[in-house]
Design a protein around this nucleic acid. Structure first.
Length: 99
DNA sequence: ATATTGACATTTA
DNA sequence: ATAAATGCCAATA
């Protein structure tokens, strides 16, 4: 299987209302290039089935989103996560440690 | 807080 | 098939 498939699998493990970081995902995949994750998610084959909006940057910033950052923020808010100036409020509280 | 450098799968030419 | 460019980043010279 490709890194890409693993990537999706990992992301799908993130429970609703929780978020994780690109770094975490990358390490869970066994790679160190967290940017590769961004590429994979950008060309996301199934943007609806894959909750890529639950993956954010390590410092709590939302990062980007292929469908528009605003969209991502809204999705996260619907899951009970507050966002302020593109940054998650109480980020550590929602952080989901993979593995 | 800004700039620079590092790291890597995927995409595009 | 090969090389160069891209990106939802992270750590720090």
């Amino acid at each position: 299987m490709s890194i890409r498939e693993k990537c999706y699998r990992i992301i799908c493990k993130i429970p609703k209302g929780r978020v994780s970081t690109y770094k975490e995902v990358a390490e869970s995949l066994g790679i160190k290039g967290y940017r590769a994750i961004g590429m994979i998610l950008k060309k996301n084959p199934k943007p609806i089935e894959i909750p890529c909006h639950r993956v954010v940057k390590s410092n709590g910033e939302v990062g980007g989103y292929m469908g528009g950052i605003e969209r991502k923020i809204e999705l996260l808010r619907k899951e009970g996560i507050s966002i302020k100036n593109n940054k998650i409020v109480n980020f550590e509280r929602y952080f989901f440690k993979i593995k």
